[in-house]
């Protein structure tokens, strides 16, 4: 067992964990932040994406122990301080970018990382960037639209409804 300490959504947290504990498990089971989802066991689906020191990371690919000292943001930390939805979250609602909601936390976290890197991505850049995030519900159309909108671009070009 090892001790880990990190900052999650601005709060210092610690835990005593087995060395093999994945960051995703630590977040879900240890911290009971269940917004981070686990949709696969081969690092393919992206439901588990969080930000580690500002970078989008699939939390199922990282050991919790490796996040020692890191600054982590999960979906629970994405809303604005007054509790209202962030621009990206609001765009997902406005453009119906989610259905069952299971992929959504990962999508929002990936979208945020994309827009931090590339504030005005093209549709095809968005689609390429989301390669590591699987959504089974939306067909991606409205996710792409939501991210375009969140970046302040017109969504008129994203085909009619």
């Amino acid at each position: 067992m090892t001790d880990v300490t990190m900052t999650v959504n601005g709060k210092a947290v610690s835990g005593n964990i087995e060395g093999r504990t994945l960051l995703s498990d630590f977040i879900r089971e240890g911290l009971r932040l269940t917004g981070t989802h686990v949709g696969c066991d081969t690092s393919q689906c992206g439901a588990c994406v969080v930000h580690v020191d500002g970078k989008a990371v699939k939390s199922c690919t990282m050991l919790a122990a490796e996040a020692e000292g890191a600054d982590i943001t999960t979906i629970e930390g994405m809303a604005t301080p007054d509790g209202s939805l962030s621009v990206i979250q609001q765009a997902f609602q406005d453009h119906h970018g989610l259905q069952c909601g299971f992929c959504t936390p990962g999508m929002v976290m990936s979208a945020a990382a994309l827009l931090a890197e590339n504030p005005s991505p093209t549709e095809s850049e968005i689609r390429k960037y989301l390669e590591g995030n699987i959504c089974r519900c939306t067909g991606y159309h409205n996710i792409v639209k939501a991210i375009m909108a969140a970046s302040g671009q017109s969504v008129a070009g994203v085909a009619a409804e």
């Binding site: 997902f92 609602q93 069952c100 909601g101 959504t104």
Partner: peptide
Amino acid sequence: DVRFLTGT
């Protein structure tokens, strides 16, 4: 959507 977008 609000609960799904906020991890709740």
